[in-house]
Nucleic acid binder design. Structure first.
Lengths: 143, 143
DNA sequence: CTAATCTCTCTAGTCGCTAGAGGTTCAAGC
DNA sequence: GCTTGAACCTCTAGCGACTAGAGAGATTAG
């Protein structure tokens, strides 16, 4: 079908050229046929595949999850239990991260709010960092 | 003063041993004196410094920011404008991330909610990933 | 046909660690 | 004082998901 260079595929999918090549090296995108001169030639199915990946990345899925989800999507007569499980895990992870960031946001805001904008030795920002006891709540590791 | 081995410093500060050595290699923590046998010997000020770093890391500051904040904290007669600016930037960044993750959370939840738990070819999870047009809103890059 | 733009491979860098190998030093118990 | 086992040392490599750049070859519009 339609013969796409890697640059056209990039523009059609929104995935950058080096990233496409990277996906090929790690086996997330199959190696396409080459032109006589050795350049990669893609078709429309590759555009779809990359859009799938891009959307999944935007939702925070890791490349391993996306590999699994793509496998599922390629063989459609299976139960979607696995897909559900992967997405649920991801949702839980996102909620965990939001909670962590929310705690961090509160502390940063409080820190800035209490700062008298004077000299460093009375700066609440530095002070708070120096002494965790000044925090109202524990905040988990950010990630 | 009190002579701490790297292991004791680690337990006192909550920062892992290899991480302490890593901080030394990148110049975030000054290289301490050594014992006759060549082992690192720390003092209580190092415990404080590492706690400062650990707390900053928990708030999502990068190591470069922490270097700058530590410099400020070491010379206390300056205006805390710089510290404020760094913390404000961090707060903005955290808010940006929360907003992004919130959009992602909504879409993941909607995706899972609409899934009929049947076969993959009707799976809303896979379907949504394949077709960004099914999303209600744009979601920015996760990070 | 030429010139500009793509594309190729390869290596190395990003961030903030973490893991492991293979060897040395320290400190506690006897 | 000696033994033993834990802790310490350096060095290299790896993680995830790319990104950047060098230097060379391919393609395409005019």
């Amino acid at each position: 079908m339609s013969d796409l260079s890697i640059g056209k595929l990039s523009r059609a999918s929104g995935v950058k050229v080096p990233t496409i090549r990277y996906y090929e090296t790690i086996g997330l995108l199959a190696a396409p046929p080459r032109s006589e001169g050795g350049q990669r030639r893609y078709d429309k199915a590759d555009v779809e595949r990359l859009r799938f990946i891009r959307h999944g990345r935007a939702l925070g899925f890791g490349l391993d999850d996306l590999r699994a989800l793509q496998d599922l999507s390629d063989r459609p007569n299976q139960s979607c239990e696995r897909a559900d499980a992967i997405a649920s895990r991801q949702l839980a992870e996102v909620e965990r991260r939001i909670a962590g960031l929310e705690a961090v946001r509160v502390e940063l805001a409080r820190m800035l709010d209490h700062c008298a904008h004077g000299e460093v030795d009375q700066c609440r920002v530095i002070e708070t960092l120096s002494d965790h006891a000044l925090c109202e709540s524990d905040h988990p590791k950010i990630s």
